[in-house]
Simulated scan of single mutants.
Amino acid sequence: MPSNIFQAVFIDRDGTIGGSDEVIYPGEFKLFSFTLASLEKLKNHETPIYGFTNQPGISRGEATVEAFEKEMMAFGFDGVYICPHQHNEECECRKPKPEMLLRAAKENQFDLSKCVVIGDRWSDMLAAHYAGCKKILVRTGAGNEALDKYRDKWTITEPDYVAEHLEDAVNFIMDQVVHIEAEGNRS
């Protein structure tokens, strides 16, 4: 179990770690310049990182679960949870439903109230809310649209932090860890 206050960080793919607000398939996907260092910062603090992403192109035969998993594991993720369904398939795993997070918690014995979700869409924030996770919205990808155009879709919750990008989000998490650890040392 990691030594810090967060048991795991779940991170969306498209628009959060790279790419844009559009789906870009494995092999063509480009990370933001700060992504690998940000992921490494979490890993250096013994924080497991998991990808969780909706990828409807899989059900249309445009890509495979294995290709997404292989790519994300190569980026440094400890595990990947993927919904391969389109929104009209009414599955249980597609964000904003929390099923991917709930499955990860069950498989890894996580207390989701001690986990963080970082994403750029309203559906990421709702999935995190329903699972009881901390929520960080990044402004990259569809993040600004989530705050403005689609704000009515997730009025039941607010992000715990709005970050400019993944690096800002990770720095916020690390600041929280340092603060809590300092408080613990004073006790």
Rank of each mutant, 00 (worst) to 15 (best):
M1N: 08
S3L: 13
N4Y: 11
N4H: 10
D12G: 02
E22I: 12
Y25H: 09
G27A: 08
G27H: 11
K30Q: 15
A37T: 09
A37E: 15
E40N: 15
K43H: 14
N44R: 11
N44L: 12
H45Q: 15
G57H: 04
I58Y: 07
I58N: 03
A63V: 12
T64M: 11
T64H: 08
T64G: 07
V65A: 02
V65Q: 07
E66Y: 03
E66C: 03
E69Q: 15
E69G: 03
K70D: 10
M72Y: 00
M73L: 15
A74Q: 14
F75R: 01
D78R: 03
G79E: 04
I82W: 04
H87A: 11
N88L: 10
K97D: 01
K97Q: 11
K97P: 06
L101R: 02
A105N: 08
A105F: 15
K106Y: 12
Q109V: 08
R121E: 08
W122L: 02
A127T: 01
A127L: 01
A127R: 05
A131C: 09
A131S: 10
K134G: 00
V138L: 00
T140H: 02
G141S: 07
E145L: 15
E158V: 11
Y161P: 05
A163K: 03
D168K: 00
D168N: 06
H179M: 14
H179C: 12
I180K: 12
E181S: 13
S187E: 09
